[in-house]
Amino acid sequence: MGKEIKTVKDIPLQELLLPGHVACAGCGMAISVRHVLKILGGNTVVTVPACCLSVIQGLFPKTAVAVPLKNVPFASAAAVASGLKAGFRLQGKELNVVAIAGDGGTYDIGLQALSGAVERGEDIIYFCYDNQAYMNTGIQRSGATPYGAWTTTTPKGKKERRKDLGLMMIANGATYVATVNPSFPMDFYGKFLKAEEKKGPRVLIGYSVCPPGWRYTPELSIELGKLAVQTGAWILWEFEEGVFRFTGYSKRLAEGKAKRKPIELYLEPQGRFRNVLRDPEKLKALKRGINERWRVYRKIAEVYSSSTPG
């Protein structure tokens, strides 16, 4: 996007997600998508599989998205994006091609197409807004739903842990992998700006709150994003050219410069974790899961602390 962004005031005013869209009040995805489009700008083409974003565009003959957008089948976002990029490349056109998909379309039904695109080294940006369940269809469990969370298909709370897409993408060979969270504006912008400059498959996974699905009041949307990072439930990191780095507040946590806040602060405002808070065993298991994740990530950071020699 050219200009350096150091503070919120440097962010361009041009909007490519137009107001009056269909997102629920307080939607985390709408915040993220609004900024992703600002960063990538008008020279961008988007593919969107079935997900909340396919709905929030609004109804034909209007759309809230002001860049070319191809709605595509649920499992196909990364594959259509690959084809689009090839088509532009064949015509000598330099355009950002970005797939924007939910966690269902990424962790589950779209994983194969994403994995193939990454393996082929496709020159695309893939942004998964991860609201941790099938929200568009009315809150059903996905591979990204965290342990203990209520959904309509896990009425007593999910028994399994969520998949780790980020690690999968590192192992899969993506050029750039990062987690983002719109509660941390500059970390968010920094990573997308970096992704835009790079070539090859770039995968960004966005923490994305969902007030109706997570059962909390919408005014807490940004607050929850902060708590997710401060309690260690969501880790901010990036991986590029063989180097893994914690970023932002997660870096402070990793370096021991800050202490993880009690997880209860993050869980309590969310109705979806009511079962966990009522059951000490479940709470223990959830905490164990987070500790385990941190252990793995610290190890990853150690292994990928500098580019592989030779």
Partner: peptide
């Protein structure tokens, strides 16, 4: 139009202020 193409517009979901 021959294809289901939608034009970018404000208020694609109507006046959402009424929510």
């Amino acid at each position: 139009p021959l294809i289901p193409a939608s034009k970018p517009s404000e208020g694609a979901a109507g006046r959402t202020g009424l929510w």
